[in-house]
């Protein structure tokens, strides 16, 4: 079941939250919403769920116009940022209640099966507050899946977990979504989470979608500075375009568009550097900071006003020292 938002507007008082937002999540795909805080990501999710009313536009689930349908009649599943497990119910009762509300007789058995699916078999009699964060997150997922929704909404589902647990649960999430053929809409501020899970990424800015594409497209050709920053580490520097070419400290790149000032986004892996002996092909930079990250080392280098983060495999012996002059070279034609 696809999710379609058309011209959705929402305002609270004088503050516009969603400003004519158009968005499509294709059936059976994962759409990630990325945006700076206050851009309307979570509001967008809540509008799909029916938790927030809209002031204009339509919300469709498949062919059904649900714009004015209350949340309890929409049949979408949602995993909340806080997980929102009912503290007065056992884990099993948390998962089974949505089924009981639908008059399903073997609700408890189904709940146990779902708990087994999220690797929580045998924990049904415990109360949520006795479980770890990762476990609670899985209960929340099982509960959201209980009503067998076609659409699953995920509001920063992994943000309260530590890094190792996040990887594990991200994999589980992806598995469950694929095996059930769910249409999922994910709100995240973690680029890694969004890019690795999603089939498509939508960039939200000030209540509008400014770019939609596959993760690779948005990462490689961000249309706005915000899109570049939201999808991963990046250095954005000012340059000038003249006659379809951008010149930046001696680099030249083809770039269609009118002449004038432009912003150039440089990913850490876009440039490599040599140690300055062969200065003919590049610009001398100075290493300002080097941070060792295991297999790779990230350098912050500067030439005049231009500051760029550069990543490079950690050299087998030693590493470039702060204050050393280096020469940057573009690794791709850009």
């Amino acid at each position: 079941m696809s999710v379609t938002l058309t011209g959705v507007r929402r305002a609270v008082g004088a503050h516009t939250i969603l400003d004519g937002l158009d968005l499509v999540a294709e059936k059976g795909s994962i759409l990630a919403l990325l945006g700076p805080s206050g851009s309307g990501k979570t509001s967008c999710l809540r509008v799909i769920a029916g938790l927030d009313p809209v002031d204009g536009g339509t919300v469709r689930l498949g062919d059904r116009d649900v714009t004015h349908v209350p949340p309890e009649k929409r049949g979408v599943g949602m995993v909340f940022q806080t997980w929102a497990l009912w503290p007065h119910r056992t884990v099993r009762a948390n998962v089974a209640w949505p089924l009981q509300l639908r008059g399903i007789a073997d609700a408890n058995a189904r709940a146990d099966a779902l708990l087994g699916r999220v690797q929580l078999g045998g924990t049904g009699d415990r109360y949520p507050h006795t479980m770890s964060g990762g476990q609670q997150q899985r209960v929340a997922l099982a509960r959201a899946l209980a009503i067998e929704p076609d659409v699953l909404l995920l509001d920063e589902p992994l943000s309260s977990l530590d890094a190792a647990l996040r990887d594990e649960l991200r994999a589980l999430l992806a598995e469950v979504i694929r095996e059930r053929g769910l249409t999922a809409v994910l709100v995240s501020h973690d680029p890694e989470e969004a890019l690795s899970l999603a089939d498509r990424v939508a960039i939200l800015q000030a209540g509008k979608v400014t770019q939609v594409g596959t993760p690779a497209e948005v990462y490689a050709t961000p249309r706005t500075e915000a899109a570049a920053r939201l999808t991963g580490p990046v250095a954005v520097v000012g340059a000038t375009r003249r006659g379809g070419r951008v010149d930046l400290l001696g680099w030249h790149g083809a770039s269609a568009g009118p002449d004038g000032a432009v912003r150039v986004a440089i990913r850490p892996e876009d440039v490599g550097f040599s140690d300055g002996k062969d200065a003919a092909h590049g610009v001398p930079f100075t290493v300002e900071r080097a941070s060792f990250r295991g297999a790779r080392t990230r350098y912050r280098v500067r030439a005049e006003e231009v500051v760029v983060e550069v990543e490079r495999e950690a050299p087998p012996i030693g590493r470039l020292r702060v204050g050393r002059a280096v020469v940057l070279e573009a690794t791709e034609s850009r």
Binding site: G50, M78, F80
Partner: peptide, 9 residues
């Protein structure tokens, strides 16, 4: 907590 209940039906 309440929103999750509504979504559950």
């Amino acid at each position: 907590l309440e929103e999750a209940a509504w979504l559950s039906g």
